[in-house]
């Protein structure tokens, strides 16, 4: 049995929306990073789902690239998180408003 494509698209969209929502509302930097990961995964899922429609393995290849990119992103993001915690002893991104005005 195969899942209908519309379900996959709807699921992917829902995941993306959750990620966006998280980025916008969360104040904790770690949760913001996790939300970005959710958004990346939503897009990756869409590529995998798309690859079933088209012959060939382009979708899977791009999924692997997104995975690698996500890994790199997490590495940099966590490094920034650590730096921020060292400096501010907090992970509240609203503290990072020194460039205001």
């Amino acid at each position: 049995m195969t899942l209908p494509l519309s379900w996959l698209i709807s699921f992917s969209f829902a995941l993306f929306a959750i990620g966006v929502f998280g980025v916008v509302v969360r104040r904790n930097l770690i949760f913001v990073l996790i939300s970005i990961e959710i958004m990346l995964n939503a897009v990756a899922l869409l590529f995998v789902a798309g690859s079933t429609l088209h012959p060939g393995s382009d979708g899977q290849v791009i999924y692997l690239m997104i995975l690698a990119m996500a890994g790199a992103e997490v590495a940099i993001g966590l490094a920034l998180v650590i730096t921020m915690f060292r400096r501010w002893h907090s992970l509240d991104i609203d503290l990072l408003s020194k460039m205001r005005g």
Binding site: V23, V24, I93, R100
Partner: peptide, 17 residues
Amino acid sequence: CSKSQTGSLRLYNATII
């Protein structure tokens, strides 16, 4: 113009989205 530069990351994100 400088009023719009609040420095709040979340507001920037929300605006972009």
